[in-house]
Design a protein around this nucleic acid. Structure first.
Lengths: 136, 136
DNA sequence: TCTTGACTTGGACTTCGTCAATCGTAGGAT
DNA sequence: ATCCTACGATTGACGAAGTCCAAGTCAAGA
């Protein structure tokens, strides 16, 4: 929230009411909203905000590395504001709920050189799947 | 290919020319086609096959566990016939090429109980990202 | 061969996301 | 405090990926 706004302002961002609202909606832990959900919540505070602006703002925040974009099984991409603490995701196969998790170990270390096919591997993303307490 | 067709027939599937063609298109290693690519290749062999049938057939094969659906960063889901040998994926951030890889270790073991939030975790999917030789 | 229910078709429809022309405004300059 | 202007917001059309449905077709068992 405000620290995110501070960081954005510090990067020379023009601060508009729309951007403020989007940043406010995307705050807290275990927040993984789709663009349309962000738009719906933003509209509650700023009725005239447009879908395109939400998409633009989310895209800009992603390029700045301030939020993380995840494409889960479902259709719409989700946005995770918890970008400065690397983490993985645990997804419920029933209802789609997502939790941030911090596994031990480094998956990158598990990929031997002869399995890299000459790639420069920079990142490993782990998605755990299962049923949450209410779906099981 | 034919072993896939045999398995499907063994499960009581009605064998139609459309399903045969889709199964044939999806054969081999390191095959990761989108639904539209599958359709395009199927049309070469069976010009009247419809998009809806390709989607239906792919969806059925996925529920039967005969192929794996992967939703990469880009938009269209891709289908991987290599479903009976568990593996992970290495994706080029430049051109989108996908390779099947077999990391050592078990990512499920890296998720401690207190990080499971009461979920019944059944599966872990790892996506490695990097640049392939021609993109780096 | 006949029958029947499962499969296929084609097209309309939905959802997610992008684009471009136009309008509005944040914030520096005066 | 007001003015300017470039950057951001809006609107609505567009596009891609995927789903749905009513009607027609056909694989395979009797």
């Amino acid at each position: 929230m405000s620290d995110l706004l501070e960081r954005l302002r510090g990067r020379g961002w023009r601060m508009t009411s729309q951007r403020r609202v989007v940043a406010e909606v995307l705050s807290g832990d275990h927040v993984h909203l789709t663009a349309d959900e962000v738009h719906a919540r933003a509209v509650e505070r700023l009725p005239e905000i447009s879908r395109a602006t939400v998409y633009n703002t989310l895209g800009e925040m992603v390029s700045l590395g301030e939020i993380v974009e995840l494409s889960t099984e479902g259709r719409a991409k989700r946005y995770d504001p918890n970008a400065h603490h690397p983490h993985q995701h645990l997804v419920c196969s029933g209802c789609g709920t997502i939790r941030d998790v911090h596994p031990t170990g480094d998956p990158l270390a598990d990929l031997p050189a002869e399995q890299r096919f000459g790639f420069t591997v920079s990142d490993a993303e782990v998605t755990y799947r299962g049923l949450c307490p209410s779906c099981s």
